[in-house]
Computed example of a mutant assay.
Amino acid sequence: MQLDWLKPLADLEGPFACATIDASNLDPTSRSHRLASWGSARRELERSGADEATLAVLEEAMTGGANGVGERTHVACASNGSLVLDMGLDGRPRREASSFGAVPRLMDVVRGLDGKETYAVVKLDREGADIEVIDPTGALVSATDVTGDHDELRKVAAGGASQRRFQARAEDSWKHNATQVAAELDRLVRRVRPGVVFLEGEEHMTSYLVEQAPGMLGDRIVRLGTGGRAAGTSEAAEVAARERELARRRAERDAQLVERFGDATGAGSAVEGWEAVQAAIAKAQVAHVLLCPDAWDDEGQPERGTGGGQELRQSPSEQPRQDHDQDALLWALATVGAELSLIAQPFEAKDGIGAILRWNDGSVRPA
Rank of each mutant, 00 (worst) to 15 (best):
L6H: 14
L6Y: 15
L6C: 14
K7G: 02
K7Y: 13
K7I: 04
K7F: 13
K7T: 15
P8N: 09
P8V: 13
P8R: 09
P8A: 12
L9N: 13
L9P: 07
L9T: 14
L9A: 09
L9Q: 08
L9K: 09
A10T: 15
A10R: 14
A10H: 09
D11I: 07
D11A: 15
D11P: 02
D11N: 13
L12W: 06
L12E: 14
L12Y: 08
L12D: 09
L12V: 11
L12I: 03
L12K: 14
L12M: 15
L12F: 11
L12A: 13
E13N: 13
E13Y: 12
E13M: 10
E13A: 14
G14H: 08
G14F: 11
G14Q: 04
G14P: 10
P15E: 10
P15C: 12
P15S: 09
F16R: 08
F16I: 09
F16Y: 14
F16L: 10
F16K: 06
A17N: 09
A17K: 05
A17E: 01
A17D: 04
A17S: 12
A17W: 06
A17H: 08
A17M: 04
C18A: 15
C18L: 03
C18R: 01
C18K: 00
A19E: 05
A19F: 09
A19M: 05
T20F: 04
T20N: 03
T20Q: 07
I21M: 09
I21Y: 04
I21N: 01
I21K: 02
D22R: 03
A23N: 07
A23M: 04
A23H: 08
A23T: 05
A23C: 06
S24G: 08
N25V: 06
N25L: 03
N25D: 11
N25R: 02
N25W: 10
N25G: 01
L26V: 11
L26Y: 00
L26Q: 05
D27L: 06
D27A: 04
D27I: 07
D27G: 06
D27M: 03
P28R: 02
P28D: 04
P28S: 05
T29M: 00
T29Y: 06
T29H: 10
T29P: 00
T29C: 00
S30L: 05
S30V: 03
S30R: 01
S30H: 03
S30E: 01
R31H: 11
R31T: 10
R31K: 09
S32R: 13
S32D: 15
S32A: 15
S32M: 05
S32H: 11
S32I: 06
H33V: 12
H33A: 14
H33E: 13
H33L: 10
H33K: 13
R34C: 01
R34K: 11
R34M: 04
R34H: 04
R34A: 06
L35W: 02
L35A: 05
L35G: 02
L35Y: 10
L35S: 10
A36D: 10
A36F: 04
A36P: 02
A36Q: 09
S37A: 15
S37D: 08
S37R: 09
S37K: 04
